[in-house]
Amino acid sequence: MIASSRSPLVWVVHISVILLVVLWTLPTAGLLISSLRDKDQLAVSGWWTALSTSSQNLTGRAASPESQVERDGKFVIAGNLLEGGNSKVSAFGFRPLQPTAFPAGTPADIGDGQTLTVKDDGSYEIVSPTRMEGARGQRIFYTAAIPPRFTFDNYREVMRAEGIGASFINSLTVAIPATIIPILVAAFAAYALAWMKFPGRAILIAVVVGLLVVPLQMSLIPLLKLYNGVGAFLGVPAKTYVGIWLAHMGFGLPLAIYLLRNYMAGLPREIMESARVDGASDFDIFIKIILPLSFPALASFSIFQFLWTWNDLLVAMVFLGTGNNELVLTGRLVNLLGSRGGNWEILTASAFVTIIVPLIVFFTLQRYLVRGLLAGSVKGG
């Protein structure tokens, strides 16, 4: 027998999969590394330089004249600009427009007979022939080679922010019911479309498929007006959790019904026929047979729906509000960035704070994900 060799197409597929995995993994790895870096280093260099020494232009201030001492007939102010470690100063200056005017160790004339010297270890001396006056110390600009520094300060700042705990609870209050309710409704509808004969079933299936392509933004305002109208008629407050649960149910039902209907339609017909022969009703078949067998499809949709509702910001702002007591976790973390988008090191840490719960859900149900999606995509009734 001639040993069979793999087709070139197989190698192309494997290489393509590896490239896709790398392309998806690199941004996540970069985000994780950035979240652990010192914010000053993060501002001047990319995450791929995290393990290398970075050169930074920094500003410090010498000690005030109150700390000067007399030495050999001259007055001296001494100190260190660096906090320790292996950092080294390469150049310094005393004017903002000339931050690297003098190499480290070179005396610089700063006027009035005073000289400033900054050594490579960050130590400095200001020497004056007369007693120095003033309330504040001399500003010193310098360039230093800073070794890589990693810290959890970004995570501490996020976790200590006011209202984070309440927003976390708000997100759970939104995401859990907004995941369970569509599954319950969609499971009943999917069973009816898959196994029950009634007029207009094909039209309903076509409508469900068509709703999959309707943009959320297009239906958001009409849905909000409808909800506000019904709420005003019934005397129900506009901004409630019920409203956002119903909104997420409406947006999630088309995909849920489509996945579950395709999966249920592929289940063995003989099981249902045997149950009917034994006198089981449609409700009994659904509860005792269909639901246990459809758990992979239910788990697949649960992952998608939970990820969507947990990370949602637009629907939460529209149907729940933007007050301090109503903000979900994504809204709270966006507020930490400020109106100008500064302090973006907070964004990197916030990203990993928000994915803790979705990761738990995903790894709990991931073994059912592929099975449920593939079964729902290739089987039909």
Rank of each mutant, 00 (worst) to 15 (best):
S54Q: 15
Q366T: 05
S167G: 05
T143V: 12
D109I: 06
Y241D: 07
A3F: 09
Q41P: 02
A50H: 00
A190P: 00
V44C: 05
F102T: 10
G122T: 00
L234D: 03
R61C: 05
S7N: 08
L97C: 07
T348F: 15
L81T: 00
Y155P: 03
Q68V: 01
N324A: 15
L293Y: 07
R276A: 14
G163Y: 02
I289W: 05
I15N: 05
F150V: 12
K74S: 11
S52G: 09
A29Y: 14
R371N: 09
A247F: 06
V76R: 06
N228M: 14
E83S: 15
M317I: 13
L374C: 08
D72C: 10
G60V: 04
E157L: 12
D282A: 13
A316C: 07
L212W: 04
L259V: 13
F306M: 05
F233Q: 09
P103A: 15
G235A: 06
W24N: 09
S302P: 03
D38F: 12
G165E: 11
E326F: 10
D121K: 04
R160H: 11
R61S: 11
K379T: 01
T117V: 15
T25R: 07
L365N: 02
G376S: 04
L223V: 03
S90R: 14
A178H: 03
G323R: 02
I181H: 05
V21R: 08
S339E: 14
L246P: 02
G372W: 00
N324I: 13
S167V: 07
L224D: 04
V69A: 14
I221P: 01
A247W: 01
F141D: 01
V185F: 12
L226I: 11
R139V: 15
A50V: 02
D38A: 14
I77K: 00
L58Q: 03
P199S: 06
L365E: 05
Y241E: 05
E270D: 15
T364H: 06
L32A: 13
T364R: 09
S281L: 04
G46M: 07
G279A: 10
G137F: 02
V353G: 12
E273R: 13
E125N: 12
G210V: 08
L327I: 04
L116H: 05
A206Y: 09
N80R: 12
P129C: 04
A206G: 12
L313S: 09
V334W: 07
W11A: 13
G122I: 00
L234H: 04
A256S: 10
G331H: 03
A135L: 14
T143W: 06
R340M: 13
F363W: 09
I203E: 07
R95W: 10
P107Y: 11
V353K: 09
L347C: 07
V21I: 15
G323A: 02
G250Y: 06
R371W: 05
T59Y: 10
F141Y: 13
F352G: 10
Q305V: 12
L314K: 07
Y191S: 03
S90L: 12
T173W: 08
S167E: 03
Y258T: 01
V277E: 10
T59L: 14
G331I: 07
A247Y: 00
Y227M: 03
I176F: 06
I180H: 02
I355F: 05
G111R: 07
F188D: 04
R371A: 14
E133K: 13
L220S: 04
L337D: 04
